[in-house]
Nucleic acid binder design. Structure first.
Lengths: 208, 208
DNA sequence: ACAGCCATGTAACTTGTTACATGATTTT
DNA sequence: AAAATCATGTAACAAGTTACATGGCTGT
């Protein structure tokens, strides 16, 4: 929903045409999240379908200017005045993956965590050096970029710290103390337990 | 992709039926990300379509057990052995929103940041107290939960710190030093600049 | 008998995302 | 003339998500 809302918010500043929108979005987000041009036109059509935007004038060059509607303006205000609900709604890909991996009897969770740690640390270092390089740059665009960059850095730092935290935790426990076998007895309503699976038929998740 | 992969990884442990998969997923992720049952069946059908899973036996109770294929096993291994690419691919909803908001001349970015800060701090506090409450609980499920909980807490802490960081930054600068008017001159290829917009026709983004 | 959970499934829909077709203009 | 960029659009698809229909079983 964030791309959609961002484009709408930009349109609240004044009519834009497709390519211009892409440019404005890039300026405001430091070009961190590249936007496929096609997505702009898709999003515009969907916004039009929802009555938040309408096709406006076409200039001599053939540029199609889109303008926001009153309903669209209201939607932008609502967006800016509401807060982003995190935690329980947002699914964190990495947390989900590592939680699942850690509870998989066949998998080597520590290796997965260590590999991720190497990559995440590297990414963090890249972000930090980029940040330092551009620190001297001035102007509103640079400010916008540094805001986004800081967000990435803060998030990456937290990620690395979390990875170190759980690595230590996993290292403490013997081998697979988090391993969860498939629950054979159903939670409620007594049902006949499944025939025990043949022991060899289990996972072979050796790191390929 | 994470739900899909998680379900497949669980199936690598042995055949499961739909509801069971939901239960196993919940156990492994501390029930933090509730999964609509319908999504399980959708995902299973899509995994089947992609050859990663096949319909297996049906027991006396009518439970349809799904089993992973060799291709599916390969996919799980690949998942576990690859790292999650963050930063440039992942779009952070909040970072994107606040970057856009901060560059919108009509919007009160500081107010938006402060409102978000209140909500995020509150959410962090809730997470931390939940974490403390459950700290004494034992067993693999509790470990799995605490892993996910820590991830949420680390991320929330980073979010709050970032919000404080940018609030200070925004407070320093006069009023709208990050404001970005729509670029009237196109970047390259000299094109006639658009007729200047009428001054009153601009945004009225007073907080509703 | 009835409410509620277990269980499977289907249909519709959302955003995001990419690949492609088409043409104008501009730079080299 | 060729290559690159600007610009608009279309078609298809992925993953996630929800609402709903349909039964069976179970506890009260």
């Amino acid at each position: 929903m964030s791309v959609r809302h961002s484009l709408l918010a930009i349109l609240a500043q004044g009519p834009c045409y497709g390519y211009q929108l892409r440019h404005e979005f890039a300026r405001r987000t430091g070009s961190v999240w590249p936007l496929n041009v096609g997505q702009i036109y898709n999003t515009l059509e969907r916004l039009e379908r929802d009555g938040l935007v309408r096709r406006g004038d076409v200039d001599e060059q053939g540029h199609v200017y889109w303008q926001i509607t009153d309903e669209g303006r209201a939607s932008v205000s609502q967006w800016l005045n509401s807060s982003v609900a995190r935690s329980h709604s947002t699914r964190d890909e990495l947390a989900m993956k590592l939680a699942v991996a850690a509870t998989l009897p066949g998998a080597d969770a520590i290796a997965t965590v260590r590999a991720q740690h190497a990559v995440s640390s590297q990414q963090l270092a890249v972000l930090q050096s980029e940040r330092e390089e551009r620190d001297s740059t001035e102007g509103p665009e640079a400010l916008a970029w540094s805001m986004v960059a800081d967000s990435l850095i803060f998030a990456a730092e937290a990620e690395v710290r979390w990875l170190e935290h759980i690595e230590a935790r996993l290292a403490l426990h013997p081998q697979h103390s988090m391993a969860l076998e498939l629950a054979t007895e159903r939670p409620k309503r007594g049902r006949p337990s499944r025939q025990p699976r043949s022991p060899g038929a289990d996972v072979q998740l050796a790191q390929a």
